[in-house]
Simulated assay, not measured.
Amino acid sequence: MSSPYRCPNCKTNRTRFNLIEQVPTAVKLDPMTGEVVQQYENGHLDPFHTPYRGPHLKVQCAACGLIEDERTFIKFGEQK
């Protein structure tokens, strides 16, 4: 986080944010009960399990509550 942020929703907040780290856990669920049958370690997924490719960090505006990818807040922060 070395870039200024600005909320794209309320357009005034440049200082108060919540940083949300996303830590994915790959699991296989029982289709009937929803219980975890197997938990996969990183890099050891079965052929039909796609690894998580989403952002590591999300940002929430602490003024209006909007949650978006960090790059969205950075792009609005670059504008004057």
Rank of each mutant, 00 (worst) to 15 (best):
V23L: 11
T25N: 13
F48K: 12
G34Q: 06
V36K: 10
F73W: 03
L29N: 10
T72I: 14
E21V: 11
T12M: 01
C61L: 01
V36D: 07
V27Y: 04
T33H: 05
T25S: 13
E70F: 00
C64K: 08
K80I: 07
D46E: 15
H44P: 00
G77D: 00
T25M: 15
G54W: 00
R53P: 03
F76E: 10
H49C: 14
G65I: 06
K80G: 09
L57Y: 03
Y5A: 01
H56L: 14
L19G: 13
L45E: 09
E41T: 15
P24T: 03
V23D: 09
A63G: 03
K28S: 11
Q39I: 07
T25P: 04
C64G: 07
G43H: 09
F48Y: 07
C64L: 05
E41D: 14
T15N: 09
C10M: 07
Q60I: 03
V27S: 04
L29T: 11
E41L: 14
A62D: 07
Q79M: 11
R6F: 01
E68V: 04
Q22E: 12
H56I: 09
C7M: 06
K80R: 12
R53V: 07
C7W: 01
L45R: 14
Y5V: 05
V37P: 08
S3M: 13
L45K: 13
L66K: 05
M32V: 12
M32I: 10
N13F: 03
A63E: 10
T25E: 15
N13D: 05
T72F: 04
S2Y: 08
K75S: 13
N42H: 14
F17H: 04
F76R: 15
E70R: 06
H56S: 15
R14Y: 06
K58Q: 14
T50A: 11
N9T: 12
A63D: 13
Y40H: 06
R53D: 09
H49N: 10
T12F: 00
I67F: 04
H44N: 11
K11M: 12
